[in-house]
Computed example of a mutant assay.
Amino acid sequence: MFVDAIEKVDQFTRPIHFIARYYGGSDIIPGTATLFFVNEEGCAITCRHVAEHLLQAEAIYAHYLKFKTELRSYGSGRVSDALRTRLEDQYKINKETAIRVRSNFVNSVSGFKRFTIHLHASQDLAIIQFHDYEAKHYQGHAYFLRDGRHIRQGKYLCRLGYPFPEFTNYRLNQQLDDIEWTNEGRINTPNFPIDGIVTRHIGENGGQSGITGIEMSTPGLRGQSGGPLFDRAGVVYGMQSATRHLHLGFDQTNREVISEGLKRRVSNYPFLNVGLCVHVDVIKNFLREKNIRFYEADGDTGA
């Protein structure tokens, strides 16, 4: 159903790899997100919450280094637990605090000198513009649905992203006491499509501000945030943003069941997980606002 469309969209959809280290630990936690390119000029879109991780990375590390410098200022000997605790409280640092976050744009563009991020004022949407890059490693670009009014309830669509961080090209540099990317290990992460139908349109202020989002019958997976929502022709209808958990009300509390031949007491509170996508009209209006070139096409005519 979506075989050709996935191959087409995959040409301009790329992963963002993240690695993070938390205070007091040496473990490296990998993560992923998704972006896709909207033109041939190195301009891509992703979710606002993804872009904020990119923007906050340097501030997170600078904050930790400031804490570390003050801790060392009390001498090279063992710092008392009371003093360490006071500084941790002062800097709001604990074992759940990320102290270092690094990112890597995989197979997007190489040799870029800088990038600019534009955050949407109210929607989970951001633009990333790569500047002064040496080469681009994506092919083609998105074509957005020309008329967003054609997105109707029951429309069968697909999303593409990178929910499973299977890359291993990172390490903890013991000498520098810092995490870093390496040229060893697995560099790539496999993409993953997920299909569904349009269930509802999402609007702000009770719909008075127009339609801003699309609800899908299936969830968007972690790491697919920022990936395109598209039809069987590969035309983009929106962007995966979040997952909403709808309580179904079919609760079972302390109910007796037979499992593996034994009577057991179980409780279950089921939810329906549905995907939320930024509407194509919101994306196109934001690109127009920032004077960024994009392309349109008519969608497929099937349901």
Rank of each mutant, 00 (worst) to 15 (best):
Y23A: 12
H17G: 02
T46M: 07
S217T: 08
H53N: 14
I151C: 06
T32M: 09
F286E: 02
A44Q: 10
Q11L: 15
F230R: 00
K8W: 07
A20W: 07
M216P: 06
I28F: 11
H118P: 02
G206Q: 08
N205Q: 10
T168D: 03
D298G: 02
G210L: 04
H53G: 07
I93G: 03
H118M: 05
N104M: 14
F294Q: 04
Y64W: 04
F271W: 02
R288I: 05
G111N: 03
F67H: 00
G220Y: 01
E296Y: 11
E204G: 09
Q224D: 03
H279Y: 02
D124V: 00
L83R: 13
Y23S: 08
I258T: 09
S225V: 07
L157Y: 05
V106S: 04
F115M: 04
R244V: 08
V278P: 07
I45N: 01
H137W: 08
E166A: 11
Y138R: 05
L35I: 09
S209R: 12
W181A: 01
Y143K: 15
I6S: 06
Q174E: 14
F271I: 09
M216I: 07
G140R: 03
A59Y: 03
N107R: 11
V278K: 07
L272Y: 13
L176W: 01
A98L: 04
I292L: 12
I292T: 12
N191H: 15
G42M: 02
N273R: 09
R48N: 15
A5F: 09
S103M: 04
D300S: 06
D10R: 13
E40C: 01
Q123G: 00
Y91A: 01
L119Q: 01
Y64S: 05
L262Q: 12
